[in-house]
Design a protein around this nucleic acid. Structure first.
Length: 211
DNA sequence: CTCCCGATAT
DNA sequence: ATATCAGGAG
């Protein structure tokens, strides 16, 4: 889509979602990383429920590596893929201690080298915890930006690359959050609420649902 | 491509 | 009953 049309869509999104903030609860880069790692295929609400108590017990990687895999599983059991996430979180924290003095690296390569951290999670940590311009493409951003015709992409990486060309750099982080909020509030995966969508006049996939 | 594999909405 | 939720690894 042309930059002009994209900026029109972004203006409407900005007016509709003025906050443009993460709905995950965290207070530092470590908590941001952990919350994001836990959030795969799981609602923010569920993650926040888990981290509300978890972050009282783990203040950094040094606290995580004290736990056994089973203990960690117990603490995050109510989120999806808890076994995989426990294994990854434990290994990631060991790597943080071994290679980064227990700090969270602020570059994509080092973040993605951590077990359980892919491009999407790395981009979230970069933008949300460090203020580094990055455009994380999750399931919402992928779905919504394609539906709106902001991009024509077959996968998240293509989506990210196309959005970075048409969205101004200083709005990457905000656009990321606007698209997520729109995906959660209106442009649902299963039954998008096109009738009440403030973007339906410019949406190529606008449909009047039967019911 | 498959597997991971709990909670929730429809 | 089934699709979906701030995905990543093998």
């Amino acid at each position: 889509m042309k930059k002009q049309a994209v900026s029109e869509a972004l203006e409407i999104l900005e007016a509709t979602y003025p906050s443009a903030e993460s709905e995950l609860d965290f207070t530092n880069s470590f908590e941001c990383l952990v919350a994001t790692m836990l959030s795969a295929q799981c609602t923010d609400q569920r993650v926040n429920l888990i981290t509300a108590t978890l972050f009282k017990e783990i203040k950094g990687p040094e606290d995580v590596v004290q736990l056994s895999e089973e203990e960690l599983q117990q603490k995050i059991r109510s989120c999806n893929y808890y076994k995989t996430k426990s294994k990854h979180l434990l290994a990631a924290c060991q790597q943080l201690l071994a290679q980064h003095n227990g700090f969270i690296p602020n570059n994509r390569e080092a973040l993605m080298a951590l077990p359980g951290v892919g491009r999407k999670t790395a981009n979230v940590v970069l933008s949300n915890a460090f203020g580094v311009p990055a455009l994380a493409v999750d399931t919402h951003v992928f779905r919504v930006s394609n539906r709106l015709g902001l991009v024509r992409a077959g996968d998240p990486l293509e989506t990210e690359q196309q959005l970075m060309k048409t969205v101004p750099r200083d709005k990457w982080s905000a656009a990321h959050h606007w698209l997520i909020l729109h995906g959660r509030r209106v442009c649902h995966a299963r039954k998008p609420n096109c009738i009440s969508c403030p973007l339906n006049h410019l949406c190529p996939t606008f449909t009047v649902s039967k019911q």
